[in-house]
Structures are given as C-alpha cells and as structure tokens.
Write a protein that binds this DNA or RNA. Structure first.
Length: 276
DNA sequence: CTCACATGTTAAG
DNA sequence: TTAACCTGTGAGC
C-alpha cells in the first residue's frame, strides 16, 4: 500500500473529512491512548504528506506524525449517518458525527511539536509530489555518489516518497539498470527519472494504484489478455520475476539489494560493466 | 488451515 | 547483515 502517492492521497482524504473541524480522537486498541486523549476534541488544521511521512496538524502547534510502515493503513470514511464501532485492532480513530478514520498497523504515531516536525522534514530529500521540490538537491547527491541508482532512489534523504514499486518501474521506463552508479548517470538521465516520477506518482495519487505501462505496451496493444497484478496496477517488472518482459519478451530478472527485491530486464536495461 | 511474503524502517549484532 | 514490528493476502496442503 504505502509509497509516497498513498500518503499524499491519504492527506487529501483526511483534509476532506476533518480539516477545520473539532475531532474526537481515541485509541480503541490502546497503543496510542495517551496521544489520543491529549488531542480529543481539538481542531484538525491540516494533514500533509512529505514522502512517506504523514503529519496531521492540530491547534496549538501539535502534529501527529504517522508512518504506515510496510503494512499499515489509515482508512477514511465520510458521509455516514452513524459512526460504527471499531473492528479489529484500531490503533487510532479520528471521528466527527459523520466521518471517521481508522489507523491500523502503523509503525509510528507520535504526537510532536513544530521542532520535531521541522527536524524530520529537514532530513528528507525532495518529494516529486510537491510542487516546490528541488530536483537539483537530489541530483547533487546522486552525481556525487558511488552507490547505485537503485539504492539511491530508495534513500529517503536523497529523494522522498519512492518505494520498491516506483523504483523498479521508473528505472525500467528510463531503461536504466538499477546497479548503475549515481556518479555515472548524466544529469539528463536523472532529470528524466525525476520527471517520470512526477508523472507516475501524480497519477497514483489520483487513481490510488500504481500503473506504469505505456499504452503501446498494454495488454490490448500486445494482443495479450489483461492481467491483474496483486498491488492493483499494471507494471513492467515489479514482481514479474521470470515472466516475459512486456517490451522484449526476455524473462524479468530479480535479486536482492540492501534487503529489498530488485527487478529489471537484462536486455532493456543494459547491465553496467566493470566499475559501471 | 498454515505459512511465506509484502508497496518500510529501525535497532541490534 | 539480520531480526523485529505490524496486518493482509495468496499459495499450498
């Protein structure tokens, strides 16, 4: 579920439901009881996402800092005549008379002040979903790095919001092998990656899915039956190990880099040689 | 039904 | 580098 597009979308939903309203806060499961009790009845000013971090600002310069981790979810439901009893392990519930939001499985849900908010924000790289994002700040780090671009794209201090799906897909779309070193990319190549992320992640915010396959490679255009991916979208290489590449037909390769699965096409994304 | 694995991150070894 | 955390899903028995 949660790459940057999910959090930006979630911030939007929270604002639609609660911005400017007094909100009841509770922790039915008990994990965030102290935080909930402190905020209960306060006015929610604005929810905002920076990369994969979610900040919900309440009156009094108080922010709830949420990170969904790998499996967390924050479901927002609006327009109900009656708010139902929580089902399962709801860590934090926000509600009004006609809307509620349930947080489950999050790794972080901290009540913090403006100093912490600024500190966290300061250590995150530019977020492709934010209009004020500074692509040059990311490029400066990439161009000076002896690490691979696959590694760098997942580093939230280099670029905030990209996860394993967008990493695999944007590198395929730009035909750049994930093990190419950052310092060996051209500025043009990196800017192309960035610009593509802006488009892809922006579409993800609207659709709530990750779709990356261009029309000319779509199942219809290629005469294949449409296939449903379990993350909900149509993709080129992510979790398609051993399946034929949608462009050249060779089997998609995979390996593990820094504890995360990496996916690429060995023909479409030419492997680096020597020191790259 | 049980088990492995996942769009993530942190902390321990 | 590995384990740990938290939950849902799909594959396999």
């Amino acid at each position: 579920m949660p790459e940057g597009h999910t959090l930006r979308r979630l911030a939007g939903h929270l604002n639609e439901a609660f911005a400017g309203r007094s909100v009841r806060a509770s922790s039915p499961q008990g994990r965030f009881e102290v935080e909930a009790r402190t905020l209960d009845g306060a006015v929610l000013l604005e929810a905002d996402a920076i990369g994969k971090q979610l900040f919900i600002e309440f009156t009094g310069e108080r922010f709830v800092h949420v990170h969904l981790g790998l499996i967390g979810g924050f479901d927002v439901t609006t327009g109900v005549s009656e708010v139902p009893a929580p089902v399962g392990a709801v860590r934090l519930r926000l509600q009004t008379h006609d809307a509620y939001a349930d947080l489950r499985g999050a790794t972080r849900c901290d009540l913090v002040g403006p100093e912490t908010f600024e500190r966290v924000r300061a250590q995150l790289g530019p977020d492709p979903l934010r209009p004020d994002a500074d692509v040059e700040a990311a490029w400066r780090k990439v161009r000076a790095s002896a690490r691979s671009i696959g590694d760098l794209l997942m580093d939230q201090t280099v670029l905030a919001g990209v996860g394993n799906v967008y990493r695999a897909e944007v590198l395929f779309r730009q035909r750049i092998h994930p093990l190419r070193l950052g310092r060996n990319l051209t500025r043009k190549q990196f800017v192309a990656i960035w610009d593509d992320l802006v488009v892809l992640m922006g579409e993800g915010v609207v659709s709530g899915r990750i779709d990356t396959v261009r029309p000319e490679h779509s199942p219809e255009a290629m005469g294949r039956p449409a296939r449903k991916d379990d993350h909900g979208g149509e993709v080129y290489v992510y979790r398609r190990t051993q399946m034929p590449c949608l462009v050249c037909g060779r089997p998609v390769r995979s390996s593990v880099l820094a504890g995360r699965n990496l996916f690429w096409c060995a023909k479409c994304q030419v492997a680096p040689r020597g020191r790259d």
